[in-house]
Design a protein around this nucleic acid. Structure first.
Lengths: 119, 119
DNA sequence: AGCAAAGTCAACCAAAAGGTTGAACAACCG
DNA sequence: CGGTTGTTCAACCTTTTGGTTGACTTTGCT
């Protein structure tokens, strides 16, 4: 079956959403989506320490949003945007709702004003 | 212009993603998307305290994902799914990317003749 | 061999998150 | 009025987060 939610999916979504809940991490991901880079290169624009960026990258990696390939001493980091798919699928369910919301909300309100709406 | 990222948008995304990074909160939102409810009703299925749920609701409210309307002593909570739109827009940028990579993957698979793809 | 560069690891810290319990408030109901 | 119901507020606790610094490992360069 297709859209069945399993416990592990839920944890995966937790990690994904959490990874994306930080502006710096979203920025890093955007940068990497444009072009792979090393940790030092990624850290350069930021005022925070290299270690802080390294930690952010680990969070992204934990959500499978990035991959790394070691080339000599450099770690070549690249985005894995397909990992966003669960988020996209999750939101798709709701997208339908808000697209349809005006019409169905209207119907809902009409039904409701006719009778008292108990629960 | 349309897709310009402002600092406040970034904070809004922070809040949205953070609100969604918890399975319980996503569940609450799903329940509310189906039908508005009171805090007590929402808390009933959970083993955690009512207060914990109340806190979760505040996080959702902070991200504008829910609204409340006080009816007597009850707080009628309802989902505001339109608040998800920034998340949807954010992910849209990346969706193109991974769709593109899927297409090239598709081409790759076709070259490889059509056989069981289930890796 | 020996030094520099790229990253990570480890320990530590302050702030935030998520939970608990108990008190308080607000509105309805007898 | 007094009690009950629905909900929040406040204080507290533990774990997680995001940041720091300093030591360590690995690889490359000469």
């Amino acid at each position: 079956m297709m859209g069945v939610m399993v416990a592990t999916d839920s944890r995966r979504l937790d990690h994904l959403f959490h990874a994306l809940s930080d502006a710096t991490r979203r920025e890093l991901l955007m940068t990497l989506a444009h072009k792979p880079a090393s940790v030092t290169e990624l850290a350069r624009p930021y005022t925070t320490s290299l270690n802080a960026i390294s930690k952010h990258l680990k969070v992204l990696e934990g959500a499978h949003l990035i991959q790394r390939r070691q080339i000599g001493t450099r770690h070549q980091i690249s985005a894995n945007l397909e990992a966003l798919r669960p988020v996209d699928e999750w939101i798709t369910v709701y997208r339908k709702n808000w697209k349809a919301s005006l019409e169905s909300l209207d119907r809902f309100l009409k039904r409701r004003s006719r009778k008292g709406e108990s629960s």
